[in-house]
């Protein structure tokens, strides 16, 4: 698959602050790249450059094979952008917002009208489409904003923190829609500070910090790079914790950690579910009462902490 989005050596400085410090990235046609990073990592700046809102100080970028600096107007015909702040006209209805965007993509009146109706239906906003946007909830605004990015059915979609500030239900709903679009062949570049979001939506994840890429890979690849899976057991009686530790020692591929206060034991393993099941049988045979047992894989939070040296703390504002 060719790359529909490609950037190399992007640099962007705002006075004293270096937002991007030589960023490279590529998104293969029909795939989703998750740009993951903490606040101020340069995610929004990267998207702004690719979506022709900013010009880079150095480096180059192509979207759909077109140079974003040399031919921004051409690029705009092939992209849809949905930002972290819903870019809608509060006083227009949902329908009018989408109709306006369609007209500005030069769809022609009947086509713009049909497309607005179609998208309102897709995003379950048909009823609300007759009301001014100022009456919408946060989730409805985000859906309409995303609908706005889809009006011209662009092959490339930039989603800048599409679910920041949404409640869990709206977030899941939006994920469904995004997955549907990807299923239809849209190429997506998504920024997020939610590790779970990148995990759910992205084929590949690019972790950035201080304007540079610090890791890249499929979500599972990144996770396995960080460390092994582990069995976590909580026993009902702290007195048998040491016995449990000895029993499970033969499955361990690294150092075990026992914590008497929480009556829990962590054993790094390799081999997944069959090993978990064998370990549980071992404990039961010895008559050890188990309160909780499970196989834990490293989360993207762990990945993040290991790669950047700090946890990802979602805050209200990005750069």
């Amino acid at each position: 698959m060719p790359n529909l989005v490609e950037a190399s050596g992007l640099v962007k400085r705002y006075r004293a602050v270096t937002a991007l410090d030589g960023l490279d990235l590529a998104v293969a046609e029909g795939s989703v790249l998750g740009l993951l990073g903490p606040n101020g990592a340069g995610k929004t700046t990267a998207v702004s450059i690719l979506a022709t809102l900013l010009t880079p100080d150095a480096g180059s970028a192509q979207v759909a094979g077109i140079d974003v600096v040399a031919k921004p107007h051409e690029v705009r015909r092939h992209i849809g952008l949905s930002g972290q702040f819903a870019a809608l006209d509060e006083h227009l209805t949902g329908f009018e917002n989408l109709f306006m965007v369609g007209r500005l993509y030069h769809l022609g009146k009947p086509r713009a009208r049909d497309r607005a109706v179609e998208l309102l239906e897709l995003f379950e906003l048909t009823e609300a489409g007759r009301r001014p946007v100022k009456t919408y909830s946060g989730g409805m605004r985000r859906r309409l904003d995303l609908a706005g990015a889809l009006v011209a059915a662009p092959p490339v979609l930039f989603l800048d923190e599409p679910t920041t500030g949404l409640d869990p239900y709206s977030r899941r709903q939006l994920w469904e829609v995004i997955r549907g679009m990807v299923g239809d062949g849209t190429t997506v570049l998504l920024t997020t500070q939610y590790l779970e979001e990148a995990d759910r939506l992205a084929d590949r994840i690019l972790v950035i910090d201080h304007g540079r890429a610090i890791a890249e890979g499929a979500p599972d690849e990144l996770k396995s790079r960080i460390g092994a899976e582990r069995i976590e057991v909580t026993v009902t009686d702290a007195a048998v914790l040491e016995e449990a530790r000895q029993l499970l020692a033969r499955f361990a591929v690294g150092e075990q950690q026992a914590d008497a206060r929480s009556r829990s034991l962590i054993t790094p393993i390799a081999g997944g579910m069959p090993v978990l099941s064998a370990a549980l049988q071992e404990l039961q045979r010895a008559g050890i009462a188990v309160r909780d047992i499970g196989l834990r894989r490293p989360t993207l939070d762990d990945v993040f902490l290991t790669l950047t040296g700090h946890v990802s703390a979602p805050e209200e504002n990005d750069e």
């Binding site: 979506a51 809102l53 705009r76 870019a87 809608l88 006209d89 965007v101 500005l104 993509y105």
Partner: peptide, 16 residues
């Protein structure tokens, strides 16, 4: 309100 970024990312005329 940020809507200007929507306009600037659309293939509309510069002066519109």
């Amino acid at each position: 309100k940020g809507i200007i970024n929507r306009f600037r990312a659309l293939p509309m005329s510069r002066s519109a």
